[in-house]
Design a binder for these strands. Structure first.
Lengths: 336, 336
DNA sequence: TTGAAAGCGCTAACAA
DNA sequence: TTGTTAGCGCTTTCAA
């Protein structure tokens, strides 16, 4: 049978509260009994049950992480960085993939509460505002990563998407590109809205007319971005550059370009967003806007844990700066 | 305050045991009271506490997943497939990244037990045999994925690594390659041992002399595989083909080849292993040995859950067949 | 078909 | 400094 606090108490010749005290390092205990208890714990290989202690109101030291899909390199890296910080702080991660399906998300939200997680980190482009509002209302620790819901007072850590979009578009414009297509995953994504706004603003600032034919919609799949790129690249308004909202979408553009015998960057400049591992291994290496993923993971975890420990009064938005990483997929516009 | 089973009982005018019964669908209850209780549960938004029920000996319906690194696409895909099956079966995943560090792994193993997970899936190249043996001894549900420990009687799901190595090497040999380098992550990995044995056997069967200078050791990083490839490709025994034990290592080979102005597949054939997303996005697309990742995730979860539910007497090894995916990184040996 | 009550392993008053 | 005891929210006999 599993060894419990009673076994330890009996063997050490003390009461269970004494054992509890030495485990949690609370109250005052004589060095002697403390040593004795520690010894017994050691020899009995006693491990306190988190379940039992959670039932008395203590933390489970477990946090739920809700993301669309870990198989997506961006979220895999997010998950990793969150977990790293969690480990440092003594928290485990319960991983939930939703594919951005609101029902799955709702299911998980409720399940995580049943499992008494101490807090939840959300990285999906959720539409379940109501549920989140309820959670917030009952002061359940919750934080957003890589996604913002401006209409909510909530802890969030994300990159400055407007600035990122601005950098990306400016980079292209500075290279002499005028026909710049922009490829979106979905307009529901707040981040994408900002990136798109920046795109438009840069065009305007540079006297380039906005052409909605150059706005490409896809889902988040490489396959669909390939298709969208294939189409626009064969159309009369063939762009000389494409700003893809995610590195993965840029990959689809690469594939389309290759199929059409177009050289990147000579015939077409491509810039991505995220700076995942994908950006470094494609050929040519992808110019992209880096999100400080590692830092983001660290910061959400910090924010959430502060919330959990209760030493935080105000919600805050942490907006981290993106960075333009110039590699070899962008070049001066040859047609200009 | 959180609504408990007592609140429901009181409001429904029944005892808590009755409520418990309708929740768990046990015992016989009159339709009438059942309906009444269900109603109250609904209006009160009651959600049973997993923590409390776990304390009485029921499952936590949580499983620990120990892997080296989710940021590695192979393990990300493994994690995803395991989670998918877990969701279907009503289990959540506690994600643990160890970087193959035995101490971290040991820490997690102990933590997971404290948290009363119902079982553990291990995907790391663990060296903690003793701990695993202990776990096995006390009949703790545990299963291995993508890795085998032949000396243990344990549930495992993995690909037929020998066959995979055989396919890879044969493919290269059939293309006329004689100087075939093999790139390993580490010889501690059981999978790699099998792949390596197969490599040697194919050479032997084809009368090709084994040259240990063609055995390249790296860690698992792209950077180091790049370096190793750079070296061998500039040495007198420059191979005409390289069998990389992981797709990621193949990427390093690509980078080295590019640096040296070598064309793949004209000047050098490269074959990988895993068939992760990486294989599809590099240029040229990578010929590789596919692991049936999705199926593997599904099967470990099934195995583990059977173990958990106790309707399984024998441990079993599920060895799934690999598949050769020929893309464009391998070609007939021009030098032959 | 239902209820009372013991107990799961632990924490935290409260007493001593 | 240490021990006793009452819960935490639930499941499960055992009785009724």
């Amino acid at each position: 049978m599993k060894v419990t606090i009673y076994d330890v108490a009996k063997k050490a010749g003390v009461s269970i509260s004494t054992v509890s005290r030495v485990i949690n390092n609370t109250g005052r205990i004589s060095e002697k009994t403390k040593k004795k208890v520690l010894e017994v714990i050691e020899t009995l290989q006693y491990q306190p049950s988190v379940v039992a202690s959670a039932l008395t109101g203590k933390r489970t030291r477990t946090i739920g992480l809700i993301i669309p899909d870990v198989a997506n390199p961006f979220f895999a890296e997010i998950a990793r960085s969150v977990e790293d910080r969690g480990r440092e702080l003594g928290f485990n991660l319960l991983m939930c993939n939703t594919d951005n399906n609101p029902d799955t998300e709702e299911m998980y939200l409720s399940l995580l509460k049943q499992k008494s997680v101490d807090g939840i980190i959300i990285g999906t482009t959720t539409k379940n505002y109501t549920i989140i509002k309820d959670l917030l209302q009952e002061r359940f620790p919750i934080a957003l990563i890589a996604q913002d819901i401006p209409e909510l007072t909530i802890d969030v850590v994300c990159v400055d998407d407007f600035l990122g979009g601005y950098m990306a578009t400016s980079h292209l414009v500075s290279l002499g590109h005028k026909k710049i297509a922009i490829m979106l995953g979905s307009m529901n994504h707040t981040s994408e809205k900002f990136r798109f706004q920046a795109y438009r603003q840069v065009l305007e600032e540079n006297g380039i007319e906005y052409d909605e034919k150059l706005v490409l919609y896809t889902d988040y799949s490489i396959e669909n971005s390939r298709r969208a790129a294939l189409e626009i690249l064969q159309s009369p308004q063939r762009p000389s550059a494409i700003f893809a909202h995610f590195d993965s979408l840029a990959i689809g553009v690469y594939q389309a370009a290759k199929e059409l015998g177009l050289n990147i960057p000579d015939d077409l400049s491509v810039i991505g967003f995220d700076n995942t591992i994908l950006a470094t291994i494609v050929d040519p290496p992808l110019t992209t806007i880096a999100q400080p993923i590692h830092e983001m993971g660290r910061q959400v975890m910090d924010l959430l844990v502060q919330e959990i420990e209760g030493n935080k009064k105000l919600k805050q938005r942490v907006i981290l700066p993106p960075e333009l990483i110039v590699r070899h997929s962008t070049k001066e516009n040859a047609r200009s």
